[in-house]
Simulated scan of single mutants.
Amino acid sequence: MAVLNVHERRIPASSEQVGALIDALAGADDPLWPHPTWPRMKLDRGLVVGSRGGHGPIGYTVAAYVPGQWVRFRFSAPRGFKGFHEFTVSSDEPGGTVLRHVIAMRLHGTARLAWPLAFRWLHDTLIEQCLDRALGAFQPEDCDHRRMAPHVRLLRYVTSQTAGRGRRPAPEPESRRAPTAGDATAPAAPAR
């Protein structure tokens, strides 16, 4: 099953100004990603090609990056998502820029059900909030702060409750575990 999902917004700012929003993705002061409401976008080495990370259950690697213009992320999770998502900036008319987000992927296995039933609704809401933030960075008075639809709030609640279930941190190797006072293997305190 193929998916092409496109969201875009005309922003009343130069392409350089809008491109700066892309350049700040996954940074400490990320002005584009709606991280107060959604899981933060995290990248292990920042916004550079080869950096790995994701947001929530979605994993990806930075596959291509042209500062101020375009960034593409290749999916690594969840299982069954084969493709990419990207942000692009293109000049519109004088003084305007189009900020676009595209997902192009093929779905396999259970992802063929998970996308249309859950991920699509969550994704569409998250990206529309990204675009709202982009517009709000330049025209706060025109920014449309969308309310989450009830089914999206329910999906967010369900996914937050199931996140991490069944995943336990791997036990620390014995050589790295700090000894406790009652531990028979704890070394004796040094004599003074």
Rank of each mutant, 00 (worst) to 15 (best):
A170G: 06
M41G: 02
Q69M: 10
L113W: 14
G164W: 09
S76M: 01
L107Y: 06
G96W: 14
E172D: 11
A118L: 14
A63S: 05
A181Q: 07
H145N: 06
F75W: 14
G19V: 03
P171C: 03
R10V: 15
D142L: 11
A28D: 15
L47H: 01
L43C: 06
G27K: 03
L43Y: 04
H85S: 09
D124W: 09
G54S: 09
H85W: 08
S51L: 09
W33A: 00
L25C: 09
P12T: 06
P169Q: 06
A189M: 07
R100L: 06
R165A: 02
R120C: 03
L99I: 05
W33L: 01
R167F: 14
A77S: 15
A77I: 01
G80T: 04
R146A: 14
M41A: 13
F75Y: 15
H151Y: 08
T125M: 09
D124L: 04
T37D: 14
H35K: 05
A114V: 14
L155H: 09
A178P: 04
S175D: 12
R9Q: 15
W121E: 06
F75G: 04
P190Y: 00
P36D: 14
S160W: 07
S175E: 13
R112C: 05
V71W: 06
H101N: 13
R146Y: 03
T97D: 03
V48D: 10
W121C: 00
D44T: 07
S91Y: 00
R9V: 15
G19T: 04
P190D: 07
W121L: 13
A20I: 05
P78S: 08
L117A: 14
A111H: 03
R72H: 02
E8W: 05
W121G: 10
H101I: 03
L99M: 15
R52I: 07
D92Y: 14
S15P: 15
D183A: 14
N5E: 13
P187V: 07
A118C: 10
T97E: 02
G56T: 11
Q129D: 15
R100V: 04
E141Y: 05
P190F: 00
G80Y: 09
A188C: 01
R168Y: 12
A26Q: 01
G46T: 06
P187T: 10
E8H: 12
A189V: 07
E86F: 01
L21M: 04
S76F: 03
V3C: 07
A26M: 02
T125H: 12
V98A: 03
F138K: 01
V66G: 02
R45W: 02
L47W: 05
L32P: 01
R153T: 11
G53R: 07
T180N: 02
E174F: 12
P34C: 03
G19W: 07
L131K: 02
R79T: 10
E16T: 13
F75A: 06
G59H: 11
R133M: 11
T162K: 01
G109F: 08
R153A: 14
L155Y: 08
F75D: 08
I127A: 04
T180M: 09
M148V: 00
G109H: 09
V98I: 15
W38V: 05
D30N: 04
S90H: 13
P78L: 11
S51F: 11
V49K: 13
L32T: 01
S175G: 05
P78T: 04
G136Q: 09
L131N: 05
H35A: 15
R79Q: 12
R165N: 03
